[in-house]
Amino acid sequence: MNIFRLAGDLTHLASVLVLLLKIHTIKSCAGISLKTQELYAIVFATRYLDLFTTYISLYNTLMKLIFLGSSFSIVWYIRKHKIVRRSYDKDQDTFRHYFIVLPCFVLALIIHEKFTVREVLWAFSLYLEAVAILPQLVLLQRTRNIDNLTGQYVFLLGAYRALYILNWIYRYFTEPHFVHWITWISGLVQTLLYADFFYYYFQSMKNNGKLQLPA
């Protein structure tokens, strides 16, 4: 495992911890999109199905369990926790799941590396992950005044994707036959979706001010 991959995974882990910190200690999910969290739960559930069939490493298994467990518990918190759920911006978070899930599934049926249940679901999870942040970005745009933790959460998620691209470039040059177009293109699309957010995030850091997206 190279340094970019490890840094990417740790950044991903950090993003989840930031979100859990906000939800668990502040008891608030204001500015957090339940739709995005539900899409991530589907992403991990479909991608990590191989947890029971293929063993890669203890690291791999542990991380998968953490991402699965955290994504489902975050959804549970926002939906069911009696204090947290009150802070959910339900009226603002209006993205429809099936507008995203259905096209991703159809795409996975058409474009995959191998026509097996595992590979089609794997491709589906990659396509879905690429666009799962959209409801969250839409919600940020609507809320405009973004609190620190929510801003950090989205920034860390974007950074994780950018680090994965560096990881693929590194692997391409160091490992024989490491070519994965489906992973790369969906990963690139996913990272590009953060471009706008990154721009305003760094601007707000430069001006030492609050993160605010334009109307």
Partner: peptide, 10 residues
């Protein structure tokens, strides 16, 4: 053994 996707990634 052909591994079609980078399944060692998360």
């Amino acid at each position: 053994d052909y591994e079609p996707v980078a399944h060692d990634e998360l």
